[in-house]
Design a protein around this nucleic acid. Structure first.
Length: 273
DNA sequence: ATGGTTGCATGGCAA
């Protein structure tokens, strides 16, 4: 038998992923290594924490990927990496609310078409605390995203909205509901905002393929990863035409291990050709 | 132990 690096691909997307890398510049070696061993066709990346001029396009292009990035400063920043085509790139989305004074629309969403799938990489605002103004911003941002989602689903698009949602939609998506009581990420308004995207015609395509209590994020502090104190807040939501092609999904918690890991693990979905 | 960890404007924030 000849040694192989994964099965040869047919035309179109076979493997698609989302990953909050928590700084592309500090993580580029890890990202490069992960792309090589995970054999993914498309990755939606969040929290690049870089301006376009700082993004290491060449490192990913050298691996055979096209790259689109939307980054305005050292906060937020989203990217899409694809080796099955990358067209119709659109930063942000219609009616996305801004933040600050003067109000600025942050770099939290990016859409492109890759291998026939309309991919949106999202970094949903962190609400911080329930009464913090950031929470109202988060909810209005999600309401605007829902409108986009509804339009996309109604148009019958094969589309996926994937990224760091900063919401744990079910009690099983956090290590302890007691711990998160009265904290952000699990509140009813946040969960309602997440459900509204599902009601608009999107499906959590990963849920059926991972165990209850599977997490995608573990805080850096308090030995949270070792103690398995995490949250599932990174999601791949797809329209029905996308969901119909899903064969399986996994959370790559191996990537959370060791020195230099992001605090989020990649989430990967396998698609039928 | 009011602690602990990362990353960025390397200096207080944000997560």
């Amino acid at each position: 038998m000849e040694p192989t690096l994964g099965a040869p691909h047919k035309v179109g997307i076979v493997r698609i992923a989302t990953w909050n890398v928590n700084s592309i510049r500090s993580r580029i070696d890890r990202v490069e290594a992960w792309l090589q061993r995970s054999d993914v066709d498309v990755v939606a990346i969040q929290e690049t924490k870089a301006k376009d001029s700082q993004f290491p396009f060449d490192r990913l292009q050298a691996l055979g990927y096209e790259v689109a990035h939307h980054g305005l400063n050292h906060w937020n920043g989203v990217a899409i990496v694809s080796r099955v085509g990358l067209t119709d790139v659109v930063p942000s989305f219609a009616d996305a609310p801004g933040w600050g004074d003067p109000e600025v629309v942050e770099a939290r969403a990016l859409t492109a078409t890759c291998g026939g799938v309309k991919v949106t990489s999202v970094y949903v605002p962190n609400g911080r605390q329930l009464e913090d103004p950031h929470m109202a911003y988060k909810l209005s941002w999600l309401a605007a995203l829902r409108s986009e989602a509804e339009r996309s689903a109604a148009a019958g698009e094969t589309a996926a909205i994937m990224g760091d949602w900063n919401i744990a939609p079910q009690d099983e998506d956090v290590w302890s509901m007691e711990y998160y009581l009265d904290k952000s990420h699990v509140s009813e308004p946040e969960r309602a905002a997440f459900r509204a995207v599902l009601d608009a015609g999107f499906v959590d395509v990963v849920r059926p393929h991972v165990e209850p209590g599977a997490f995608t994020y573990w805080d850096y502090t308090q030995l949270a990863f070792a103690k398995r104190r995490g949250m599932r807040i990174d999601f791949i939501l797809g329209t029905q035409p996308f969901a119909d092609r899903v064969l399986g999904a996994a959370i790559d918690r191996e990537e959370r291990k060791g020195k230099g890991a992001s605090d989020h693990a990649p989430v990967v979905v396998e698609l039928a050709d």
